[in-house]
Nucleic acid binder design. Structure first.
Length: 224
DNA sequence: ACATTAAATTCGA
DNA sequence: TCGAATTTAATGT
């Protein structure tokens, strides 16, 4: 992924726009880079942008007033987020943190609204994305509470291969085991162990700096 | 926590 | 510009 323009052009919704609409979207979008560990956006801030990841890895997390942090999901190349809060014109309900240096495209509110008013495919895409995200969050809930660690890791990985939310991901997911650990809420050591279990089961193949998924369905139903 | 190995970067020709 | 050497990052135990 190189820049804002390629991100938009390769996004599912971007492909359904006319050239004119695309140019308009482009002119209302800026790029920003976040260092590893920085907050891309914080819970409680007013929402001014719809954001998409050009390159990098973000972690969506919510923390309870009790101080407990719940990791929701990761966002990687080609993933967009924040549409829910933007639509409802409310403050953001979660934090998004960059796990490694991450380049983010930020579309301002008026451009987002303009696209909603002018493009039916754009609306369709939004509805689908909201729906998928909802399903994913429900899955994450049971994930955090009920499942053993190996299974959690399997689910976290499987979540990256939702074609609607993460159109950019191929079979080769570029994520280190440490980052996977952050997303599953486990230590790196444990993530490594869990990964080996999955590898023995023939579901994934781990390599330096990334993980290749061999059997997505098996990964989704792992532990059932 | 430590040892090993892969990748990225630097440096010299 | 190429490749060896060094440094940095990821992995396995």
């Amino acid at each position: 992924m190189k820049n804002v323009e390629t991100l938009l052009r390769t996004s599912l919704w971007g492909q359904s726009l006319t050239e004119e609409e695309l140019q308009r979207a482009l002119s209302g979008t800026v790029e920003r880079t976040f260092a590893a560990g920085a907050f891309i956006c914080m819970k409680g801030e007013p929402v001014e942008y719809w954001m998409g990841i050009i390159d990098g890895l973000g972690k969506m997390a919510s923390h309870w007033t009790t101080g407990k942090t719940t990791s929701l999901t990761g966002i990687t190349n080609g993933g967009w987020f924040g549409e829910g809060s933007l639509l409802k014109n409310e403050v953001r309900r979660y934090d998004v943190m960059a796990l490694r240096e991450t380049r983010v495209a930020m579309m301002n509110r008026s451009t987002f609204m303009w696209l909603m008013d002018h493009s039916i495919p754009f609306n369709r895409h939004l509805i689908t994305q909201l729906n998928e995200r909802l399903g994913q969050f429900i899955g994450m809930m049971e994930n955090e509470r009920l499942l053993d660690i190996d299974t959690r890791i399997a689910r976290v990985l499987a979540a990256f291969f939702n074609p609607v939310l993460y159109p950019g991901t191929t079979n080769l997911l570029q994520i280190s085991q440490e980052e996977l650990g952050y997303l599953a809420g486990v230590s790196r050591q444990r993530a490594n162990q869990g990964l080996k279990v999955l590898e023995d089961a023939g579901l994934v193949r781990s390599e330096y700096g990334g993980i290749e998924v061999l059997d997505l369905d098996g990964l989704r139903s792992f532990g059932d």
